[in-house]
Write a protein that binds this DNA or RNA. Structure first.
Lengths: 227, 227
DNA sequence: CTATCATTCAAACGTTCGTTTGAATAGGTC
DNA sequence: GACCTATTCAAACGAACGTTTGAATGATAG
């Protein structure tokens, strides 16, 4: 009847997923080979194909394992905020923080490899391979819709076009911060000890994003419409 | 004496660079093979190794061709602003626009493949391969230093740590916008005709970034320091 | 003990990779 | 004409890739 064995049955899968997370982050999806991967995980070369079917399927599994719960957390947090508000509109910064905190919790989760995934995720948004981009798009779509309507309700005076663009910018800020922190240091000077303190980072990101989101409409743009 | 022939001597190199720009953007550095590359350029497979030495050297050449003049433009624009100001501090948004405009001019340069490079560049900031990141870092370093000191002079009351972080965020916003526009559409709704109008995009980006840069210091962070 | 099952393993599959080679080609100089 | 140099070309190199195979392994059930 295949009862659950004494040692966890998925140890191999988990080891593969952890190794994949780390090596995909370090070398990219094409750059990390099955042989590197399985060697790091301490499993046989054929194990990935046996347990996941193919390398592409493994990539999907890597994202599903982290992203599904992450977006569920986001939606739950937004639900909680809206329930507390009892119909009153939410503060934009609170909505932003509801979106951010799930990402930043993962940055801090060093022990379980969450930081590896954070960096991997930050890079995945700009991945050239179409299947991966489509996958990411599909996994984010529901949460994005919810946050878009929440922000639209919080900022009724902001034209929908502008809101979409500013969400785009906010997402870019987050994505780059997740991907590049401690890898690229284009601008020298950030104190290393602050770099992964999730609370400090969330404050900084939320402050920056809120200000950008609430910025007055671009004057030149209005002139351009009037002209 | 090897006088310049009638037909431009570098046609082959240029064709290779153009093809590389496009295919690196579409498939990544590892995903675009020499055979794809040379086929697209209409040259022999051995031409890349003959003219550039290796694939890695070609990647370097792709970045140098565009990035060196781009950062030179940025510095020249900043020089011009500072000369005009005659010692008075510059407006932060003007500094930001001096940085942005070179990127956005390239987005609009469709004919010469500038847009291909823009998207490629946006992705390169989060590239896993170390040599590429180091290359990018080296090429940006001088311009970044100059803009950092310019912004520090324009915002003397902003702590240096915060400035560095906010520059980081601004850079992320730009990088993601360059990389992801028209590829990922995580947030549906942006009008396609606006997506590549450089003036509109510059206004939107400058507005967002300026607001973020000038945001009040994060309250929670200050509380944290006091505690 | 025997049969059954999921899993692991070493080995090999065919393909594609970046690079190298040596001959062929073309243009310029004397 | 002969000579030189730069470039192009078809072909091949060894290495690494993702995947498949069929036998070994070990725990569970009858």
């Amino acid at each position: 009847m295949n009862l659950r064995p004494l040692k966890p049955p998925k140890e191999t899968q988990v080891r593969i997923l952890d190794a994949a997370e780390e090596l995909f982050m370090q070398h990219g999806f094409e750059g990390a080979s099955m042989r590197m991967l399985t060697a790091r995980a301490g499993v046989n070369l054929a194990a990935v194909n046996y347990h996941f079917g193919s390398k592409d399927a493994l990539i999907e599994a890597v994202f599903h394992r982290r992203l599904d719960p992450m977006n569920a957390q986001r939606l739950a947090e937004l639900d909680r905020l809206e329930a507390e508000a009892e119909g009153k509109p939410l503060a934009p910064e609170a909505i932003i923080r509801a979106f951010l905190s799930a990402s930043l919790r993962m940055v801090e989760d060093v022990r379980n490899g969450g930081r590896n995934f954070s960096r991997l995720l930050g890079r995945a948004y700009t991945e050239p391979a179409k299947p991966i981009r489509q996958l990411i798009g599909r996994m984010y779509a529901p949460a994005m819709e919810r946050f878009k309507t929440a922000l639209a309700r919080a900022l009724p005076e902001l034209p929908r076009d502008e809101l979409v663009w500013r969400m785009h910018f906010m997402f870019g800020t987050l994505a780059y911060t997740l991907a590049a922190t401690d890898t690229v240091q284009l601008i020298a000077g950030a104190k290393p000890e602050d770099r992964y303190d999730a609370r400090v980072l969330e404050d900084r990101l939320a402050t920056f994003m809120s200000a950008g989101l609430l910025a007055p409409l671009p004057g030149a743009h209005q002139v351009r419409i009037a002209a």
